[in-house]
């Protein structure tokens, strides 16, 4: 589904990604772990198409298609979803209105008519129940005044609405208490299928207790230095990142 080969990327001439290789197939859950500043969030932004970053080498293929020339919205239409580490507040646009614009934009890209209001409202109701989101919440301005947990829950709610092929969850666990984490993880797990994949970007192993990964990758200084199964996450939790760095330098 996603093939990243020797990906290099800069921001303002500073080299962040220094040759990433990653392959994700349908049905798989991958986790990328690593210390602060290793380039994890950059990788997710580059996949989603953030324009501040410049790809300086390598390639990103999604279902065989080169993503590098596509706008962020085109990537979204192809089925890539990025759950933000810091979701943006948009005062004046309600959650439902935003969802309507988003969903209908996806449909338009697929050559479909706008979804009938009745169907959309029903879908919003169903998916908000999945994430245990209060109905009142939906008419509030998007993310404005939301707590950290509410923002993250709202991200996964949007993911549920859009049903992406590849969901990238960037530090979705940060700022969540254990109950909120369970709700969010439960939401993600319910959305998993043989056809879609999940890329988790995280600092801590905690989230991986609830969303169990098939592969764990360790990223240090712009490179994936070690890959393994979920046991690797426990090892990292126990031993920290230093041994991986040392192993790398050896």
């Amino acid at each position: 589904m996603l093939k990243i080969k020797n990906l290099q990327a800069n921001i303002e001439d500073k080299e962040i990604l220094k040759g990433i290789n990653l392959e994700i197939n349908p049905g798989e859950v991958h986790a990328i772990m690593g210390p602060n500043g290793s380039g994890k969030s950059t990788l997710s932004s580059v996949i989603a198409g953030k324009e501040e970053y410049t790809m300086t080498g390598g390639e990103i293929l999604f279902e065989g298609e080169d993503l590098s020339e596509l706008d962020p919205e085109e990537r979204a239409h192809k089925g890539i979803f990025l759950s933000f580490q810091y979701p943006v507040e948009i005062p004046g646009v309600s959650v439902t209105n935003f969802m309507k614009a988003s969903l209908n934009a996806h449909r338009k890209a697929q050559g479909l008519e706008d979804m009938p209001a009745k169907d959309m409202l029903k879908m919003i109701r169903d998916k908000s129940e999945l994430l245990e989101i209060d109905r009142k919440f939906l008419s509030r301005s998007l993310n404005q005044g939301f707590s950290g947990g509410e923002k993250k829950r709202n991200e996964i709610f949007q993911m549920a609405m859009l049903n992406p092929k590849l969901a990238i969850l960037d530090e979705t666990d940060s700022g969540l208490d254990i109950d909120a984490l369970k709700v969010v993880a439960n939401g993600v797990n319910k959305l998993r299928s043989e056809d879609n994949a999940v890329l988790l970007i995280t600092h801590y192993q905690r989230l991986l207790d609830y969303i169990v990964p098939d592969f764990v990758h360790v990223m240090v200084d712009g490179k994936i230095v070690k890959s393994g199964n979920k046991e690797l996450a426990y090892e990292l939790e126990e031993r920290g990142y230093d041994w991986v760095k040392q192993e790398k330098s050896v």
Binding site: P72, E73, I90, G92, A101
Partner: peptide
């Protein structure tokens, strides 16, 4: 970028942000 990553095209995203800006 947030809006575009949710599939909303640039032109529409700009319009929606301006709408939000004024509508406040």
């Amino acid at each position: 970028f947030y809006m575009r990553s949710r599939g909303i095209p640039l032109k529409e995203a700009r319009a929606l942000l301006m709408y939000a800006f004024a509508n406040n």
